[in-house]
Amino acid sequence: VLLLKIHATKNCSGVSLKTQELYAIVFVTRYLDLLFSFISLYNTIMKLIFIGSSACIIWYIRFHRVVSQTYDREQDTFRVIFLILPCLLLGIFINHEFTITEILWTFSIYLEAVAILPQLVLLQRTKNVDTLTGNYVFLLGGYRALYLLNWIYRFLTEPGYRQWIVWISGTIQTAIYCDFFYYYFQSWRRNEKLSLPS
């Protein structure tokens, strides 16, 4: 959705490069297993799509002659090191297995939980949020919220299925969106443009 929006409108105002870069880190550190394990064709294709689309978005915002001019550089100032470092430490200390790939995988789970924060802060600073950007954040949060249902379903149907690190991180991730969801639905109900209160 976001890549299509940027490609079609040649405009990325209100889009956080920081969040996109965090997602690129998340996808690359988590999908290292592309090199040594195979789950399913769907799983492999989606991993490649996630890595590829976030790389494309970053390229557009950083380097595209027209799009890069519309980037809200002065507003997108979230200090991502304050997210990356704690997640790395957490990954080193709370994991299932003390190996490089497992620590990076765990780090990616923690980082994904908070990766949307720079985007939410930028949305809050943006007076009139572009409809497509609002929809993108809604779909991203909604996609992750559906995992909660999937986890309950798998827990009930697959004996021994449990993954506490993923469950807790995913629940926090979805909780971070709650405020956004509230204002998204309110603006949708009133047929108004989305704007988050500061």
């Binding site: 297993d33 799983n43 989606m46 991993k47 297995e97 497992e102 299925y161 993954q163």
Partner: peptide, 10 residues
Amino acid sequence: GNTKPPHDEL
């Protein structure tokens, strides 16, 4: 429980 669950989700 330190058993590593399979990483079969995205």
